[in-house]
C-alpha cells in the first residue's frame, strides 16, 4: 500500500499548476524516500523533474516501490476542488495499481471529499540526466524572473542570456524592436528574495525559447527565489526549491546558430 498525507494541500495544487501545461501525462515514482516525477514536453525540448521527499508529508507509507501514471489534467481537476489548507491524502495499491485515490479533508474536519482517478499507461523511460558542472549560477527573485520572461516575450520569441562577473543580461528582439534587461550582482544580500547573485566560473551566452520559460515560471508561487544554471554546451536548468524537502527543476535545450 502506498499512502501519503500532505498537511498543506495547497502545495500539491501548486505542483500540478507547475507541470500540467508542460507535461500532460507523467510517471510519479514513489519509493520509501520520495515521490519523483519526470516528464518531457511533446517536442522533447523541455523536461521537468519534481522531487518531494517523504519528510514533506505528515504521514508517508510506501511498502513497495510503485509508479503511478498520472494524467495531470485529471489530477488538476481534483485538486481544483481542494482548498490550500485542506489535508490531501494520496493512496494507491502497490501491486500494479490501475487507479489512485485522493482524499481531501477540510481544516475544520467537517468536510471530506474522496476521488478515484484512473492511472494511465505511459511508456516513456526515465532519462539519465548527467551531473553537470555549470559555468554560471544566477539566483534571483522568482517574481522578477517571471516578470522578465513575460515582458521580453512582447519583443521576441527568444531570449539571449549573457552572464558576466557582475551582471546577467536578458535580451530579446523582433519587429517591435530590441529589449535588454540587465540585473547587476547585488553587493549586499540583505533580503535574499530581492537580491541577485551571479556565481560565474566562465562567461556564458545562450539563447532560449521564451514560450517554454513562460511555462516554467508557473512554478513561481512555489518559491520566492529561482536559480538558473547555465553552461555553453548544456540545457538551461531553472530550479525552484520546495522548502527544504524537494524541488522542481526544468531543463530547456538552447537554440543554436545555424
Amino acid at each position: 500500500m502506498f499512502e501519503a498525507k500532505l498537511q498543506q494541500g495547497g502545495l500539491l495544487k501548486k505542483i500540478l499548476e507547475s507541470v500540467k501545461d508542460l507535461v500532460v501525462d507523467g510517471l510519479w515514482d514513489c519509493d520509501g524516500a520520495a515521490i519523483t516525477l519526470q516528464g518531457m514536453d511533446s517536442s522533447h525540448v523541455a523536461l521537468v523533474e519534481m522531487l518531494l521527499r517523504a519528510e514533506a508529508f505528515e504521514h508517508y507509507r510506501c511498502d513497495r516501490n510503485v509508479t503511478l501514471g498520472m494524467n495531470h489534467n485529471h489530477l488538476s481537476k481534483i485538486l481544483k476542488c481542494a482548498n490550500n489548507d485542506d489535508i490531501v491524502i494520496l493512496k494507491a495499491a502497490d501491486q500494479n495499481p490501475d487507479s489512485c485515490s485522493l482524499i481531501l479533508e477540510s481544516k475544520n474536519g467537517e468536510k471530506t471529499s474522496d476521488f478515484v482517478v484512473s492511472l494511465v499507461r505511459i511508456d516513456t523511460d526515465q532519462l539519465g540526466i548527467p551531473e553537470t558542472e555549470y559555468s554560471a549560477h544566477v539566483k534571483m527573485s522568482s517574481g522578477e524572473f517571471q516578470r522578465i520572461c513575460r515582458d521580453l516575450s512582447q519583443f521576441g520569441d527568444a531570449v539571449q542570456i549573457t552572464c558576466s562577473k557582475q551582471d546577467v543580461k536578458f535580451s530579446s528582439s523582433g519587429e517591435t524592436g530590441k529589449a535588454n534587461i540587465t540585473l547587476t550582482h547585488s553587493a549586499t544580500v540583505d533580503k535574499e528574495e530581492e537580491s541577485v547573485t551571479v556565481d560565474l566560473k566562465e562567461p556564458v551566452d545562450l539563447t532560449f525559447a521564451l514560450r517554454f520559460l513562460n511555462l516554467f515560471t508557473k512554478a513561481t508561487p512555489i518559491s520566492d527565489t529561482v536559480t538558473l544554471s547555465l553552461s555553453q554546451e548544456a540545457p538551461l536548468v531553472v530550479e525552484y526549491k520546495i522548502g527544504d524537502s524537494g524541488h522542481i527543476r526544468y531543463f530547456l535545450a538552447p537554440k543554436i546558430q545555424e
Binding site: 523511460d125 532519462l127 539563447t207 548544456a234 535545450a253 546558430q257
Partner: peptide
C-alpha cells in the same frame, strides 16, 4: 535565426 535543438542531444534517451 537560431534553430531549436532537442534534449536528446544532451540526455541519453534509453
Amino acid at each position: 535565426s537560431k534553430r531549436q535543438i532537442t534534449l536528446s542531444r544532451f540526455f541519453k534517451l534509453p
